[in-house]
């Protein structure tokens, strides 16, 4: 708590603050405006309490996901935050709002957060939600904070819902169409498609994993290679339109991997205009592209949400002087 109070004072007194995690996703959400003197702040680290019989864990936001995963694995559990780099901090992953590759089965990361403690731009320590697996007492701050890019407050502590580690977890490939696999498999952990090959992750009881794999003649495989390139982004699209998006992506120089049934499409390219072209393809299908890395001249989101006024008022309510990660989430500023 002392650490929280000190951080709250520091944030309350600063004119501009950049909230730092491990820096693994620093390109997401827009560059922090460097025109003001910036104070870098980091959330404290450590697991506060882990009770396997509650299937919840209270963890400080600066804790690396890898450290949390190791502690949970010791008691046979996990929390599927699944960042690409396990050095990423719990707070950083939540603030960026990027869900992991097993989302089709385990849901988005916003469904994992039961309680949050955060420090507002005014230096107030606020708690929202509660430590139990079910809770409707007041407004859902845990979900609001996920994907808010540190513009409403600095996450300092969260309670996450955990789950038992699957008895078996295996990747396969298949030549069947992703749509057919989607309807044939009960609760796959991931179906990923790159236009040529479909990758399937099955998790559960060993008997079920093996029998599903043999029924569909799936071939054991490594996990799908994540698209690599200087410029990276993720498209968010109605999953029903992945097929037509794929056709558009074929015409441009990008590598991509789509999460079937979810609508997340990971794209990467070394071509300077590649991410811009992928964004246009996403817009053509009613989706949008989040810039994750590289492409410094590209707008971080490329779209302005229709409800930006509400977002602007929310941001003003928690950070009236605009000191938290200034420049990030540029559309969410109230203009009366």
């Amino acid at each position: 708590m002392t650490a929280f109070v000190e951080l709250a004072e520091q944030i309350g007194n600063a004119t501009a603050v950049e909230i730092m995690g491990a820096g693994t996703q620093r390109g997401i959400g827009g560059a922090v405006d460097a025109s003001k003197p910036i104070v870098e702040v980091r959330a404290p680290t450590g697991i506060v309490s882990l009770d396997p019989a509650d299937m919840t864990v209270r963890v400080l936001a600066g804790t690396p996901v890898g450290v949390l995963s190791a502690a949970l694995a010791e008691v046979g559990q996990e929390c599927p935050l699944d960042p690409e780099d396990s050095a990423a901090t719990v707070g950083g992953v939540l603030a960026c709002g990027c869900s992991g590759i097993r989302r089709i089965r385990y849901g988005p990361i916003r469904d994992r957060v039961l309680e949050v403690r955060f420090i507002t731009g005014q230096g107030r320590l606020v708690r929202g939600g509660g430590p139990t697996v079910k809770n409707v007492s007041g407004y859902d701050f845990p979900r609001l904070m996920v994907g808010s890019h540190g513009t409403l407050g600095m996450l300092v502590e969260v309670v996450l819902k955990t789950q038992p580690l699957a008895n078996k977890s295996s990747w396969y490939t298949s030549e069947l169409s992703p749509a057919l696999l989607r309807t044939s498999i009960y609760r796959p952990a991931c179906i990923a498609w790159n236009g040529k090959m479909t990758y399937v992750l099955l998790e559960g009881h060993e008997i079920d994993v093996l029998s599903q794999a043999s029924e569909l003649s799936l071939e054991p495989a490594q996990s799908p290679p994540h698209p690599i390139g200087k410029h990276r982004g993720r498209i968010s699209i109605d999953p029903a339109r992945i097929g037509s998006l794929a056709k558009r992506l074929e015409d441009i120089e990008v590598r991509w991997l789509a999460e079937i049934g979810v609508g997340t499409v990971h794209v990467a390219t070394n071509k300077d205009a590649g991410l811009h072209d992928a964004r246009l393809a996403a817009h053509g299908e009613g989706g949008w592209l989040l810039r994750e890395a590289g492409a410094p001249l590209l707008d971080p989101f490329g779209v302005v949400p229709s409800n930006r006024e509400v977002m602007g008022r929310i941001r003003d309510a928690f950070d009236p002087s605009g000191k938290l990660n200034p420049g990030r989430l540029p559309f969410a500023r109230f203009t009366p």
């Binding site: 709002g97 869900s99 989302r103 988005p108 916003r110 409707v136 407004y139 859902d140 979900r143 609001l144 996920v146 994907g147 808010s148 409403l152 968010s236 699209i237 109605d238 999953p239 029903a240 999460e259 979810v262 609508g263 997340t264 009613g286 989706g287 949008w288 989040l290 989101f301 779209v303 302005v304 949400p305 229709s306 409800n307 930006r308 509400v310 977002m311 929310i314 989430l329 559309f331 969410a332």
Partner: peptide, 22 residues
């Protein structure tokens, strides 16, 4: 206004999440 969407992540804050249970 539309809150959330059929795409997995909406742009900006999760207003859908705020609205449910309000």
């Amino acid at each position: 206004v539309r809150l959330g969407g059929l795409e997995p992540d909406a742009v900006g804050y999760d207003l859908r999440g705020c609205f449910v249970g309000s």
